[in-house]
Each structure stands twice: as structure tokens, then as C-alpha cells.
Amino acid sequence: MASLQGYVDHRVLLILQDGRAIVGVMAGFDQKSNVVLSDSKERVYSMDEGVEEIPLGLYLVKGDQIVLIGELDDAVDQSVDLSTVRAEPLPPIRY
């Protein structure tokens, strides 16, 4: 059973269908993969400048918009200097 229980109270990376990447602490979820993220920040990637982190606060994301939920390894995440990262924004989901 693929459950999100293991991610509760952990810092996670959420990738949405429009290509957005959001990091936050997963406060809760349900059977339809709707997710509650607290202390969330959107990470905007670009080829010209480093990653921009926009604070968003408490977020309820609909499950049908979610592509992937990744458990963030805090140690590795801290060691990454976001200002040096250059990348294309993630492509949106195309059916």
C-alpha cells in the first residue's frame, strides 16, 4: 500500500502538474492525496539566476494537481547553495 503516512511532519518537495516545485512540512493528507503543507515555500528555477524562494505559508493542495511528493533529506538540502543552481523550470504535465 503506497501510503503518505511516512512523510507526515517531514519536510517534503511537492511537484505540481503546472511544473511548480513547493517545499514545506507535510501536516496531513487524505485518500485522494490532498495534502496540507505548513511553512511552505515555492522554489522558482531559472537559467539566468539562482533559485528564488517565495514564502507561501499554510497551503492545502488538491491531490489531482500533485505529480510527485519527495522526502527532503534536510542535511543534503542545507548543503545545496540555491543561488548557484541554474535549471529550466520543470515542464508541465501533458496528457
Binding site: L13, D64, V67, G70, E71, D73, V80, A87
Partner: peptide
């Protein structure tokens, strides 16, 4: 649910550098 993940084209997608395991929605 995947463990010990590796993104195939890492250079183009550094977004998941700090992610070791993930949950992927079936619909995508």
C-alpha cells in the same frame, strides 16, 4: 513509492537533488 531514487538527466533536473525517496501519483 520509490526508494533510493536517481533522476535520469540529473543536470537538467537538479530540483530533486536532496530527495532520496518519493511518492509518485499514478495518474501522471
Amino acid at each position: 513509492r520509490l526508494d533510493s531514487i536517481k533522476v535520469l538527466d540529473e543536470a537538467r533536473h537538479p530540483h530533486m537533488m536532496a530527495v532520496k525517496n518519493c511518492f509518485i501519483r499514478g495518474s501522471v
